[in-house]
Nucleic acid binder design. Structure first.
Lengths: 362, 362
DNA sequence: CTGAAAGCGCTTACAG
DNA sequence: CTGAAAGCGCTTACAG
């Protein structure tokens, strides 16, 4: 460790000929101080290059003015936008942001949370990677530390949350494809947390209208439900060979599934992707297969990424307000940090269909 | 503030019937403790739900195991990848990450730095928004707090830095266009920190071979220099009406300049962009003008973004190793934090040309 | 309006 | 191997 010359309040106090209590009052701007002492202390502090030590203050006040975030992967546009929304709100309120990645792995999430707790964050915003196994979140929540969940909720965990209207958005998107005359529509979806009973059972039940969206259902499952609902509403059967679980948040897995889907004799005339990562993998498969959108295959993606606007012919998408979701989560969290005891609430944001040139009529 | 039940070392010590010193030694795993006491204290700690308070520890040890980052805008792929590289290395070493955005504004950068200093970070990674006005960075550096600069260096500030070989990369990219037969190549570049003498003067001097790359030259200026050098090497004149300063890190500004460039009677046959944000604005202008790449216009961008691989016909790019740059910066910083007094070093990463379908022969 | 004293939750010498 | 004491840099009552 380099020897950093720390100027403390005591140093300033001594140089200014006042007590540390007084120096503290003016430097921390709490309590009274005569204008003349204030000027004197301020001048000395500036001359000595005094910088407050937030650690000491936080140890006493019990607040760090820092919030902790557990994202899946900050490299994705999804999390990057959310993070910027959180960051701007935190900034406005003078809060710092401690950011971690879980890569959707429970052990990473727990490690990240431990780190954030140890650093005494005033609150947490987390995108939980398991919507069922979350004893660690329950435990944290029991200590009264404010938590806001984003993108996904956790079964039985009564904390504030911000999510998107996933099933409805997906249904609208797939509905557009169906209205354009498509009947064989492929889906590439993560579907990593298996629903009880398995995917075949889920499809069957959903198509029979027996599945209700639960907030704690994983987003990709909700979006698959929307896909099925759109078929049901149109009186269309489901061909389960068109439903492709990538099994992970990876564009490589999506690429693999899409390539397979597109190489079949009776390939689907349209594709639906359940999020940005899937969209990128699917786009790569389409490009590599030499297919042209929308002539050879139509496409709609969940989540509107930057490139969808300018990639010919323009990719239609369901846009979820990522930045606003992050900002809202931060506001909800800061309300709690400020002491709000309002009942737990869930904010559901409505995604919007953005029509571009990627859907052909059939 | 909610009343969070804090279990302290003193509580554990009392319940375990040992002194706080002993409890501290086992819980903090420093110093000796008999196996039996260790087990006893650990058991009690777990039963009481003890969680260490990093604030108190940091106040004593003088290290927070936290590093602070000032990025331009974490939403961009450029910063998002860098951040992930930093994050992974920080993680490996058990460090947390406090992340801020400057939006390339000096006042924001200074505010961010104040916040990070107050939180007593062990070191800083910053992408400085002004390579000349940086008294605040000098001042911080004088306190011996380790700083690593990323993407841009600061004149006269002797700290470690990680940058890309900008002029050379740009020269290679533009060279590809020239070799393909292009002679009228438009550039859209930020160029926000004016070089002394103005842009006309810079172009003239550069074309005469009088400008040397300086590390503290703003990246977009270095890339413009590469553009000019490529022309000079090929014996081509420069038409300064083809050089378009966006004046800010905004795809809107890039869009405006590109639209203007493309609407002229004698429009350029190829375009070069100096970074990802410019590339997105230019892509939008090309799409809106109904032009087809590479039939109507060829394109090469500095920085290889995800979509360039799958957007037909594939956009050729100069790829800079963003993730590796971030990881390297973090490693350099952690070496300093660990006490390294090695001479200040600058790591220059070599970008790589990725050939795709966006360059037509003329 | 100002100061002396205590204390936040730990770690660090120093005895024993 | 363990404990009593001091102290990190602040803020918080409490006197005066």
């Amino acid at each position: 460790m380099a020897t950093r010359s720390k100027v403390t309040i005591a140093d300033v106090a001594q140089a200014a000929g006042v007590s540390t209590a007084t120096a503290g009052r003016v430097l921390g701007s709490y309590g009274y101080a005569a204008k003349s002492t204030r000027d004197q202390v301020t001048a000395v502090a500036r001359k000595l290059g005094y910088r407050p030590n937030g650690l000491a203050r936080s140890l006493i006040t019990g607040e760090t003015r820092t919030i902790g975030v557990v994202a899946g992967d900050i490299r994705t546009q999804f999390y990057a936008s959310i993070l910027r929304g959180i960051s701007d709100v935190a900034d406005e309120h003078g809060f710092g942001l401690l950011i971690t990645n879980s890569d959707e792995r429970l052990d990473h999430e727990m490690r990240a949370l431990d780190l954030l707790m140890e650093k005494q964050v005033d609150g947490l915003i987390v995108s939980p990677c398991d919507t069922r196994k979350a004893r660690h979140l329950h435990r944290i929540s029991e200590t009264q530390l404010p938590i806001v969940l984003i993108d996904r909720a956790v079964e039985g965990l009564a904390v504030d949350q911000v999510t998107a209207l996933n099933a409805e958005g997906a249904e609208a998107a797939v509905g557009e494809l169906i209205r354009a005359g498509h009947t064989r529509i492929g889906v590439v979806a993560e579907l990593l947390e298996p629903e009880p009973g398995g995917i075949e059972r889920f499809i069957e039940d959903a198509h029979a209208g027996l599945v209700r969206t639960a907030k704690s259902m994983y987003p990709s499952w909700q979006r698959l439900l929307g896909y099925i609902n759109a078929h049901r509403a149109a009186g269309l059967a489901i061909d389960s060979s068109l439903i492709r679980p990538a099994g992970s948040y990876s564009s490589e897995a999506a690429h693999r599934e899409a390539r397979d889907l597109l190489s079949h004799a009776e390939r689907p005339s349209a594709l639906f992707t359940t999020d940005g990562t899937m969209s990128e993998g699917v786009m790569r498969a389409i490009a590599e297969a030499g297919l042209v959108i929308p002539r050879d295959v139509s496409l709609v993606g969940f989540d509107d990424l930057d490139w969808m606007a300018f990639t010919p012919p323009g990719i239609s998408a369901i846009s979820q307000p990522r930045y606003a979701m992050g900002a809202a989560a931060a506001r909800m969290l800061l309300d709690r940090v400020a002491g709000s005891t309002a009942p737990t609430s869930g904010l559901t944001m409505t995604p919007e269909f953005i029509k571009r040139g990627s859907i052909a009529r059939r």
